[in-house]
Every structure is written in C-alpha cells, then in structure tokens.
C-alpha cells in the first residue's frame, strides 16, 4: 500500500502550514508564539490532535505490556543459564608468599562478590558497583563501593557498619593491602510496609 501524495507537502487545508511545521512547533513547546498558527482554527485542531497522539504514544508500550497475557519466559532462563558460566573474572590477584609448588590467584570477580555479599548483609543497605583500583603493582589497592540505603536507615551508622565489616573481612581474603575505602550512597530504596513481595 503506498500513498500517491508527495510527503511533506500540504496534506490538509492548514491555512498554508504543513503538518511537519506544526509538529516542529509542538516540539518547541509552542514558543515563540506563532500568531499565524494560533489564529488558524484548522491548525489549532491539528495541534490538539497531535498532542493527543503524542500523549497516547507515551502510554502505548506500557498498555501493550499490561494487556499481554502472562507467559513462561523460557528465553530468560536460557540467558541466565548461559551467563552464569562466564561470570566476569576481572583481574587476577596473585597470592604472595606461597611455597614453591603452589600458585594461586583470587579473581577480582570473587572479591567484588564478597564485598557485595557483605553489603547486602548489613541491615538497610544494598551494595551496588564495586571497584578495585591498584595503586602500584604489588602494592595497596583502593576500593570504591556504591550503595543504596533503605529509606529510614540511619545513614552514618549504616555506612559505618558496612565499612567495619568490609575492613574486618577483606584482609583475610584479598591478597593485597587495602588502601582507601570510599563508600558512596547513590540512592534511597523505598521499601513498602510489610517488606518486598
């Protein structure tokens, strides 16, 4: 199905204006005020229609999604099975001072997971991104962690508890000295009455 009319040309009697012009005008927030457009009934009707169209566009996907029947998401299970096999090892930190005949490394992924688990175990806190930054080769490593706090949890106390637990646990697990430990609260979680479902 094709349209014989040339695109972009006057498609209605819009008092000399094109639909494209009206859309651009709408995109600009109807400023600066255009008396030619605003005084034309045809243009005003078209603008109203375009605004309705745009408002409906915004809701379209949400409504499609809500209307769709619940379905088993086999594709999701397939994806999750596959990615767990390749779980981002990151850097490999060698354990120093091992006797001859034994070589060992701890992956950055393992240490990130550990810090993440420590944070999750602190009441009112959820761990986000964990970044290790070596200072010099074989030297201290800085740690930067982003966290979310549950609304109502005391900020200073909760972060302090997290720091305490990380600094208590990490020296026995990280094969390097910890330098700085920076904790950044990135957002606040609203937990509804009765907890999460």
């Amino acid at each position: 199905m094709t349209d014989a009319r040339p695109p972009g040309g006057p498609v209605e009697d819009l008092d000399g204006h094109t639909l494209d012009e009206l859309v651009d005008y709408l995109d600009r927030g109807r400023t600066p005020y255009d008396p030619g457009i605003e005084s034309s009934p045809a243009c005003r009707i078209a603008l109203a229609g375009l605004e309705r169209l745009r408002a409906r566009a915004a809701d379209l996907l949400e409504e499609d999604a809500a209307a769709a029947p619940a379905r088993p998401e086999h594709w999701m299970t397939a994806v999750l099975d596959r990615i767990s096999l390749e779980s981002r090892p990151g850097r490999r930190f060698a354990l120093p001072d091992l006797p001859v005949g034994t070589d060992a490394v701890v992956t950055e992924g393992a240490l990130r997971g550990l810090v993440r688990a420590v944070g999750d175990s602190v009441p009112g806190l959820l761990t986000g991104r964990v970044r290790f930054t070596p200072q010099e080769p074989g030297g201290a490593v800085d740690l930067a962690v982003e966290v979310s706090l549950v609304f109502g949890a005391p900020v200073d106390g909760t972060v302090a508890e997290f720091r305490r637990r990380v600094l208590a646990l990490l020296p026995d697990q990280a094969p390097f000295p910890i330098g700085r430990l920076d904790v950044r609260v990135r957002d606040v979680l609203e937990v509804p009455e009765g907890g999460a479902s």
């Binding site: 999750l80 990615i83 767990s84 779980s87 981002r88 990151g90 992924g109 990130r112 997971g113 993440r116 688990a117 999750d120 175990s121 959820l126 761990t127 986000g128 991104r129 964990v130 982003e146 979310s148 549950v150 990135r186 957002d187 979680l189 609203e190 937990v191 907890g195 999460a196 479902s197």
Partner: peptide
C-alpha cells in the same frame, strides 16, 4: 533477604551489580 530487596533496587544500582557480574 537480599533477593527480595533487589527487586526494589534502582535501575542504576542493578546495572552496576550486573556489570560486576551479579546475574
């Protein structure tokens, strides 16, 4: 406990964890 609260986490926090390897 962590898994439940995870469903309430912001997109940004989740993306950071996932980038770290948290499936």
């Amino acid at each position: 406990v962590g898994a439940d609260v995870l469903t309430l986490a912001s997109d940004g926090l989740l993306a950071g964890r996932a980038a770290d390897g948290d499936d």
